[in-house]
């Protein structure tokens, strides 16, 4: 990702790698919107998103201790948004399976809340990216990314379009399916980051 932008290794490879992990987490979140909740891959992908987001934060804190300033009450709003998105993402992922069935006996209420939380997570992560202004900082880039994020966030609420995605599952191994989704994540990262950066 950092290689493809006009300012490769802008902060040094180690620093850009840490931020790249954050973009990978965001891309996993967006792919979750395309992945039907009933599929076998929704939860593994959610755990990958949580892991990437946690490693993104932890790695950067180890790399640059000054960033501890961003965990104090004086942190800027875009860091609050990122942290809030991470907490809600972790909560949504933890409250799945048996826990989810205990809290939400009905599917409909759960879906509504789950989608609301995911929309907040996407909005929070988007604000975090735009607010930090490292890679997406021009007005037209922010507008394009906001539009893309809105489309991804709204996708599960559009009736029909996610159904066809269940079809390729027949006959494919779990590992291959997961690999395909990881490739999709890379494509989404390119779409969300590389395209706007090069405009």
């Amino acid at each position: 990702m950092a290689w493809l932008t006009p300012t490769p290794a802008a902060g040094g490879w180690l620093w850009d790698f840490g931020n790249g992990l954050g973009f990978v987490a965001l891309a996993f979140i967006l792919v979750l919107s395309l992945e039907p909740g009933r599929s076998r891959l929704h939860r593994p992908l959610a755990w990958l998103a949580v892991s990437a987001a946690v490693v993104h934060g932890g790695y950067l804190l180890v790399l640059d201790a000054t960033l501890l300033e961003y965990l104090k009450p004086t942190m800027p709003p875009y860091m609050v948004a990122g942290l809030l998105a991470l907490v809600l993402l972790a909560l949504s992922t933890l409250a799945s399976g048996k826990v989810r069935r205990r809290i939400f006996p009905g599917q409909r209420a759960f879906r509504r809340l789950h989608w609301t939380l995911s929309a907040i997570v996407i909005a929070g992560a988007g604000y975090h990216v735009a607010g930090s202004a490292f890679y997406i900082n021009e007005g037209h880039q922010i507008a394009l990314v906001a539009t893309l994020l809105a489309v991804f966030a709204a996708w599960p609420r559009v009736p029909g379009p996610t159904r066809w995605m269940l079809r390729p599952y027949s006959g494919s191994s779990h590992g291959w399916l997961l690999a395909r989704r990881v490739l999709a994540v890379l494509a989404v990262v390119s779409l969300v980051l590389v395209v706007p950066r090069n405009l």
Binding site: P6, T7, A10, D64, T66
Partner: peptide, 25 residues
């Protein structure tokens, strides 16, 4: 950050000598 970092980044993109752009330290 806008004053310092953005100016450094603009110079970096233009291929000119520039100051720090990312790392806080």
């Amino acid at each position: 950050h806008r004053l310092c970092r953005d100016c450094h980044m603009t110079r970096q993109v233009a291929g000119e000598p520039h100051g720090p752009t990312r790392r806080c330290l």
